[in-house]
Design a protein around this nucleic acid. Structure first.
Lengths: 185, 185
DNA sequence: GCAAATTAATGATTTATTCAAG
DNA sequence: CTTGAATAAATCATTAATTTGC
């Protein structure tokens, strides 16, 4: 809405970008038919990969990482680097928000006399927030043991130092094995 | 069109969510739970208050300040003055470390935006940004001369405005209003 | 069943802090 | 004291989900 845009130039309007054609929508994969270049509408595969990366610990990818991810994800449909950047920003913030909300609920319940509802809400936490567990489609190349133990000692602040990982989607559709091997090491 | 280029120079960007809530005692080493008197295990509230104080500019609390903080924080669980002292020592040092590492990393990224090796150091530190800041619940009051002189002993980067302050947690009603009004002089 | 209307999610922008270099 | 860079917070805006009346 503003022409100020000093950062990346928003050229979402022009149909041009990213030869990746349209989205191969699987479920929510947007762009049903006509190229409605309103805003990026990620495909289910794209979301899955992004979510796996997030769960593996990635929070604020570097520009290089963003480009690699974007490049790989372009296989599944139209995507730009900025989409990846925004996705991580939003996802990080909103996960934090969810976690905080739930924690406040837990706190309220605990401080109250009885906490009969605690399990219920604990379950909600599991549902709402993304557990940081490694899924089978995500292969983590282990850190060295020292740092791993160090990492475990910091549960409070969501700190992660995942280094190298590759993300491969299992029996999904026809797609190449993603190898987002972002060598952080 | 910057299509061909890597596009997306992160200049002015942002995204995110909201941050209103409060943390919650998770693994509180609190006074109530099992008395595992190994070492201090701060509750989430204690960490929150300490972090807020840190963000408000406090770096090296005086003995009086330490005692008052400790006294107030004892509401949330077992705590001793030395815990507060060590917390500030450690937090100050670690924040400095983090900042230093990040800034080094930034330099590396600038030198070679498209340098594939830059990501080498990147991931290691990307997610190390300081946790969320909370300001709305923190009120600052003017400082006096003693603190001013103390301030001068800090490196420039830490010469923030350190003041007398009170920390009131407004939205979270289930604990008393902290009034950490530390009187210098 | 089906769209219009409404609500929930979430992509994208803008604004404010923060640190530190000059 | 000013300014550059990075990012979190807050907000705007658009799309998908869903509800609802027919």
């Amino acid at each position: 809405m503003d022409e100020g845009m000093s950062g990346f130039c928003i050229k979402t309007a022009g149909g041009g970008g990213y030869g990746g054609g349209n989205n191969r929508a699987s479920t929510g994969g947007g762009g049903a038919g006509g190229t409605k270049c309103g805003r990026w509408n990620p495909t289910a595969e794209q979301v899955k990969v992004l979510t796996d990366l997030f769960r593996s610990g990635l929070r604020t990818p570097t520009t290089d990482q963003i480009q690699k991810i974007s490049s790989q994800l372009s296989f599944y449909g139209k995507i730009e680097s900025k989409n990846v950047f925004y996705w991580f920003q939003n996802h990080k913030a909103r996960e934090r928000l969810k976690r905080r909300r739930v924690s406040v609920e837990e706190r309220d319940l605990f401080d109250g006399a009885d906490n009969i509802f605690s399990e219920k809400h604990a379950g909600e936490l599991e549902q709402l927030t993304e557990p940081e567990r490694v899924v089978e489609t995500l292969q983590l190349f282990p850190l060295n043991s020292y740092e791993e133990s160090q990492k475990l000692r910091l549960p409070r602040s969501e700190r992660n130092e995942i280094r190298t990982f590759s993300c491969a989607m299992e029996k999904e559709i026809d797609h190449p094995q993603l190898d987002l091997r972002l060598s952080f090491v």
